[in-house]
Design a protein around this nucleic acid. Structure first.
Lengths: 275, 275
DNA sequence: ACCAACTTTCGTACTGTGTACGAAAATACC
DNA sequence: GGTATTTTCGTACACAGTACGAAAGTTGGT
C-alpha cells in the first residue's frame, strides 16, 4: 500500500504517535469516549489493531495523551497579554471551560488519570505564576487556584449532564416534569424546570461568567485581607515559610457543623474504571 | 440451599433489588467502580451472574440506583433545623461533599447518568425550597444552586485526583517533583508542591469550607442586589414571569473576552462509556 | 545484488466484560 | 398431589484490551 500524503482526514498517513492521538481525539469528539476502542482507532488509522501498540504502550497512555492535549488546547485558546490578574484568571477560566465543553469526554478522564503530561504541568505552572506575581502567597495562590478549578470543573460537569443546550430534546424531559408536576411532589423543582430551564432562550452556559466573577471578587477579598499582600513577587525557590496566612474571618453562622468532615478511611488503591 | 437470615455481610440473604444495590455499593466502595462487574456482584450475592438480571434490567440501572442512594445518604447526613439559609446551604454542601468523598466513584457517575431517582429529585427540590423561601427568585435560586453544586462537584473531583490525603504515597510524587525542580521548568508548580501540598499537616479537604464561605458570601450579595428580594416566599406554581432579575453590576475588567464562548456543535448522542 | 539489522505491521488467541435466550429449579397455591 | 408463578442458572455471543511472536517492509553496508 502506498502512503498517500494528503490532508484528508481518514486517509492513510505515515503512522506516528501524534497521529494516533489526533485520530483518537477525533473519535472521542465525534462519538464519545465509548467509541474510542483500539479496534476503531486502528481502523480510522487504516491499520490493524495491534499495529497501534507500536506507538503506544496501552490504551491508558492514549487517554493520558488526550488529557494533555486538552490542556494544550486550553492554553492556546487564551489571549496574549492582559492587564490584571483578574482578567488573566478570567480568560484562563473561560478558555478552559470552552475547551472542556468542546471535548466533553475530557472531564471524565481528569479523574482516573494521575500522570500529568508536559502541557498540563506548563498550564498549572503558568496559572500559579499569575497568582504569585499578583501578590498571592504560596498557600493563598494554591487555594485560589483550587477554588477556581473547582468551579470550572464542577460547572462543566453539570453542563454535560444537562439534556443539551439547544431546545431539541426537551420534550422528553418535559413529559417527565409534567408527570412530577401532577404528582404534586417536587414543586420547587418543577417550578425551576418549567419557568427557567426549559424556557425558550435559556442557556445554562451563560451563567458561567456570573459565577466566575463572584469567585474572582471573593479572591480579591482574600488577597486584601492577607498579611503577605505587600510581598508581591518573591521568587519561587526562596524557601521562606510564611505559611499560616489566610485564616479568614469567621462569619456568625460559621462554626456549628464541621462535624465528621473527611473520614474516608481504608482507600485500597487507585481506581481505574476505564482502563 | 437454605437461606440463612443473618446480619453477616457476604452471607446469603433472600435476594432483593435493595440487596443488589447494597452489595453493589459495597463493591464500589471497597475496590472502585472497576471492581463492580455483574459477575463479581453475583458472586458477592452468592448467586450466578444471570440471576441478578431478575431484579435489575441491566447494569446501567444499577448505576442509576447507586447514584440515587448517594443523594439519599447525603440528605440523611444533613442536620435537622437551621436558622438561616446560609447555614442550611452550608450544611447541605458539607454533607454532600462528605458523601461524595465517602463514595469516590459516585462523581464519575454523575455524568453519564441522566435519569434521576426519587431521592435525587427530593434532594434537589428541598434545596431549591430553601433558597426560594429565603427570598431568592426562581432564576436566582437556580443560579445559586448551580453555583454551589459546581463548587462541590469540582472540589470533590480535584480531591479524588490528589494522590491521597494521608502522607503515605507521597514519595512517588515527591520524586517526580524533585526531577522537575532540577529541570528548572515549572518553578511555581514545584514551589506549590513542596511548600504547600506535601507539607506534613497539609489537608486539601480543609480548604473546602473556606471556599464555600466565599461562595455563600457572594450569594448574599446576589440576593441583596436583586429586585425580587422582598418577594420572599411566593408559592411555586404561581406562574409569574419576573425573570430578568439579576443582571449583576459590571466590573471594570469585565467585558473584553467573552469571545467564542460555547460552540460545541454536532453532539451526536448521549455518551455512555461505563455502560 | 545480497544480506543482515532494524523498524513496522499484523494473525492468532486468551481473558474478561455485559447480556440475550430459554431451560431448569424452587416455591406458592389450590 | 398438580399446576402456576417466581426465581435461578447454563450456554453462548459480541465486544473489550492486549500478550506473543511471526511476517513484512525498510535501510544501510559491502
Amino acid at each position: 500500500m502506498v502512503k498517500e500524503i494528503s490532508g484528508i482526514p481518514g486517509a492513510k498517513l505515515p503512522l506516528d504517535r501524534e497521529l494516533v492521538l489526533e485520530r483518537a481525539m477525533e473519535l472521542a469528539d465525534g462519538a464519545g469516549l465509548g467509541a474510542l476502542t483500539m479496534r476503531s482507532l486502528a481502523q480510522s488509522l487504516g491499520v490493524k489493531p495491534m499495529s497501534v501498540y507500536y506507538y503506544v504502550a496501552n490504551k491508558s497512555e492514549i487517554l493520558d495523551g488526550l488529557v494533555d492535549r486538552v490542556f494544550e488546547e486550553a492554553d492556546a485558546a487564551r489571549l496574549g497579554h492582559v492587564a490584571s490578574w483578574q482578567q488573566a484568571m478570567r480568560n484562563r477560566a473561560i478558555a478552559l471551560r470552552n475547551t472542556l465543553v468542546r471535548h466533553k469526554w475530557a472531564l471524565g478522564l481528569l479523574e482516573s488519570r494521575m500522570s500529568p503530561g508536559a502541557a498540563t504541568l506548563r498550564h498549572h505552572n503558568a496559572t500559579l505564576e499569575t497568582l504569585r506575581l499578583a501578590g498571592f502567597g504560596v498557600v493563598l495562590a494554591t487555594r485560589a487556584y483550587a477554588l477556581l478549578d473547582s468551579y470550572i470543573y464542577g460547572f462543566v460537569l453539570q453542563e454535560s449532564t444537562i439534556p443539551v443546550g439547544d431546545g431539541s430534546s426537551i420534550p422528553a424531559v418535559a413529559e417527565t416534569m409534567v408527570k412530577h408536576f401532577e404528582s404534586g411532589q417536587y414543586p420547587y423543582l418543577v417550578e425551576a424546570a418549567t419557568e427557567v430551564v426549559m424556557q425558550p432562550g435559556y442557556d445554562f452556559g451563560s451563567q458561567f461568567e456570573d459565577g466566575l466573577d463572584l469567585l474572582i471578587r471573593g479572591l480579591e477579598v482574600w488577597l486584601e485581607s492577607t498579611p503577605t499582600s505587600g510581598t508581591a513577587s518573591q521568587q519561587p525557590g526562596s524557601t521562606n515559610n510564611s505559611h499560616i496566612e489566610t485564616r479568614l474571618e469567621e462569619t456568625p453562622w460559621h462554626r456549628q457543623t464541621t462535624g465528621n468532615a473527611h473520614s474516608s478511611m481504608t482507600r485500597s488503591g487507585p481506581n481505574n474504571p476505564p482502563d
